[in-house]
């Protein structure tokens, strides 16, 4: 096998009009973006809260969250699997082996990243803004909206880091999604499958497409946040 085979496989996938492939790409993006949005909706306020709140055990929580940034995807997948399995506590929802289960698992992976980076950024920003905001009566959690908005361009990096982790992982989506053709098959599980079938050019071709997509999304977000940051100073 050589690289030209992989490149031509990638080219064939992208321009071949293969609907199954487009569905896989679509599902990958939808699952990952949904997980990132969910993680942001939860993680940004949670990270900001952790930055501003003072309570016993706060240090332990910060260490825990920072540590969970390295949570192995298979472990996250296993936890979600056990919870969503028909024999698990939330089994009656019937979510195992569905895209929703994949979103939940990836949210679990992305959340610690968003919380940890948000906590750090907001803590720094709050150090700078604290007296002015207090002067305006914005103390405690009332300072959070201002801090999140003013940290938005830096926070985009946190969200991108989460996106990168979610789009690249295979362990969690494989366990909770089941890699069902046409239903829960994503870019990464398809790559794993093609590798196990020994079709390495196709696997690598899928990999090239995935990398290109990830690069594209990163580039757009980076450019947008740079332009925005220049505006906001």
């Amino acid at each position: 096998m050589d690289v030209t085979q992989a490149l031509s496989a990638a080219f064939g996938l992208v321009f071949g009009g293969d609907h199954a492939f487009y569905a896989i790409v679509g599902l990958s993006l939808t699952v990952t973006l949904s997980a990132v949005v969910l993680a942001a909706l939860i993680g940004l306020p949670a990270g900001a809260l952790l930055a501003l709140a003072r309570f016993p055990g706060r240090g332990a929580v910060i260490v825990l969250v920072n540590g969970l940034m390295g949570l192995p995807p298979v472990v996250a997948g296993l936890i979600v699997f056990l919870v969503l399995s028909r024999s698990g506590p939330l089994g009656s929802l019937g979510l195992l082996f569905t895209p929703a289960a994949m979103v939940v698992a990836q949210t679990l992976l992305v959340l610690p990243i968003v919380i940890a980076i948000t906590r750090q950024l907001i803590e720094d920003l709050h150090g700078e803004y604290r007296e002015h905001l207090a002067s305006l009566g914005l103390t405690g959690i009332r300072a959070i909206p201002t801090l999140l908005w003013d940290g938005r361009f830096a926070l985009a990096t946190a969200i991108l880091a989460g996106f990168g982790r979610a789009s690249a992982e295979v362990g969690a989506v494989l366990i909770v999604g089941g890699n069902i053709a046409g239903y829960t098959r994503t870019m990464t599980t398809a790559i794993a499958l093609e590798t196990s079938k020994g079709d390495l050019p196709l696997a690598l071709g899928l990999g090239i497409v995935l990398i290109a997509l990830t690069l594209g999304i990163n580039a757009v977000t980076y450019a947008a946040s740079r332009v925005g940051a220049r505006f906001a100073g």
Partner: peptide
């Protein structure tokens, strides 16, 4: 983005599939 999330939630109901 929120619409996207909603779309997936929709997808994940047993009655609907991407295929």
């Amino acid at each position: 983005l929120v619409l996207g999330a909603a779309a997936v939630a929709q997808d994940s109901r047993p009655s609907a599939t991407t295929a």
